[in-house]
């Protein structure tokens, strides 16, 4: 991985082809220079395609990766403010899993088509995006996946949700990429028991995974704009991500 010492990068809005051939908006951040490098698909959380998520995209570019974050609510609310778009998306039942997979595959294809691509693509998501990163790694061709505190990878989804989701237990045998999991020890969704269940299942399946739980951290500890931001967990977490992607996305 060639990282620009200056941290110079470019970031812009692009259009890529997502699920069903739909053209959707995405945020693209790229390091300066033409060195070959891996790509990162960043999945935004349910509250939307927001500023803190775009900050993460720029961080991945600063780390030396081409990073693209598809706007999962573009279809419902093109051009709307991210929070308004998220409200529409939620009211409409959230992002269907099949559509999410198609959009992530479109984002991965976009990255692999860049002239700087080394062909490797990782996927990362936080919160609902953590579950979706696992979903993608079970259904699509990616080289690494990072699940940051995604609820309902295991566990029981309460009945009657407007948002139509299931856990991913029946899909885990198809997990096709190394998985890094970062969790809050004080989180309740996913709870430590649900994380332990995931760890047990992946062990039984012989999957390549690495989990870290941070004792004092609650849910959403990477979120820079909320009270649960946890400096020790964030510092170690970013180092784990850097090492993990450095291992699996090298060309």
């Amino acid at each position: 991985m060639t990282v620009s010492p200056s941290g110079s990068l470019t970031a812009t809005t692009v259009t890529l082809t997502g699920h069903g051939g739909d053209e959707i908006e995405a945020y693209l951040a790229r390091p300066e220079g033409d060195a070959r490098r891996g790509g990162v698909v960043l999945i935004h959380h349910l509250p939307g395609y927001d500023r803190p998520t775009k900050e993460m995209a720029r961080r991945f570019a600063e780390m030396g990766y081409d990073c693209v974050c598809p706007n999962l609510f573009h279809r419902e609310a093109p051009g709307a403010a991210p929070d308004d778009a998220a409200a529409v998306g939620r009211a409409n039942g959230g992002v269907p899993d099949e559509r999410l997979i198609g959009d992530a595959e479109g984002a991965a294809a976009y990255l692999r088509a860049l002239p700087t691509s080394n062909g490797k693509v990782g996927v990362i998501g936080h919160c609902s995006g953590g579950r979706q990163a696992v979903l993608v790694a079970c259904n699509s061709d990616v080289d690494a996946a990072v699940d940051c505190y995604g609820a309902f990878v295991t566990g029981t989804v309460p009945e009657g949700f407007v948002l139509r989701i299931t856990n991913l237990v029946d899909q885990l045998p198809r997990l096709g990429a190394p998985l890094l999991g970062l969790f809050g020890g004080a989180d309740s969704h996913p709870s430590p028991a649900e994380v332990a269940e995931l760890e047990r299942i992946l062990t039984e399946l012989g999957k390549d995974f690495e989990f870290h739980s941070y004792g004092g951290a609650g849910h959403g500890f990477f979120a820079v704009d909320r009270p649960n931001y946890n400096v020790p967990a964030v510092q170690d977490g970013w180092e784990r991500i850097e090492h993990f992607f450095g291992t699996h996305l090298e060309g």
Partner: peptide
Amino acid sequence: MCTYSTVKA
């Protein structure tokens, strides 16, 4: 978490 629980009226 992103709780997913949503009530509409």
